[in-house]
Design a protein around this nucleic acid. Structure first.
Lengths: 113, 113
DNA sequence: TCGATGTATCGACGTCTGTCAATACGACAT
DNA sequence: ATGTCGTATTGACAGACGTCGATACATCGA
């Protein structure tokens, strides 16, 4: 869980910006898979819950999301693989938090100016 | 004025921000479908080409994208339905451009601070 | 060790999505 | 009108995705 995808661009700070410069296929694939992680309503609500709580135990996500435990586990994995969520295992529990630097990088990908 | 964000933001300015406030299902659905439009490498490259050119004829997208004409037409439609691309029909041609205000709104959805 | 609890994985199902060939639509020129 | 050219739509197919029950794995308490 919580693996950080390596970026081909110079910094860990930013990433390709399709609206400012042309994308090659590699950059497009990477960015697309990142946005794909955000392209699901359950994952967005999950993200908003974790962001709002700052840190959140997985078991506290089941009820508000109204999904089964395997489904929630699937979604946390997708977000973690995209580098958006980080999981910290403490005993039997996993505490999830948002990697805000990663989100900022995705946000920069949509820079218009 | 008004640093307090209103939750029912159907404004042209902004949109729900999952990392600043909890999302209801309606907002999550809308945002997810918007990000889904960005969750494809061909569409991201298409977007970068149009953004780079400022305005771009559909027929000029076929070669750089390496996709068939129906496929490109499909992708432009997906982006247009998401409000990200605007098409201007002039004679036989359609000129595509990026709706930067819409992109800015999506970008604001990823605000962390 | 044993049972309980939180999480991850597997297998299966239905649905959605990207792709292209074929075709239809629309606008221009002759 | 007729043909040409750019674009949109249709139909079909393979692959990806969201979902959940069943199950495996891991950790803690007794």
């Amino acid at each position: 869980m919580a693996r950080t995808p390596d970026r081909t661009s110079t910094e860990t700070e930013c990433c390709p910006r399709p609206l400012l410069e042309p994308l090659d296929e590699q950059e497009a694939d990477d960015l697309a898979s990142a946005f794909a992680a955000l392209a699901d309503p359950v994952r967005l609500r999950l993200l908003s819950i974790v962001a709002d709580a700052g840190e959140c135990c997985a078991c506290d996500l089941l009820a508000p999301l109204g999904k089964s435990q395997p489904t929630v586990s699937h979604h946390t994995k997708v977000l973690a693989d995209a580098g958006i969520l980080r999981g910290d295992k403490r005993g039997r529990w996993v505490w999830w938090s948002v990697d805000r630097r990663r989100v900022r990088a995705l946000r920069d990908a949509l820079r218009v100016t």
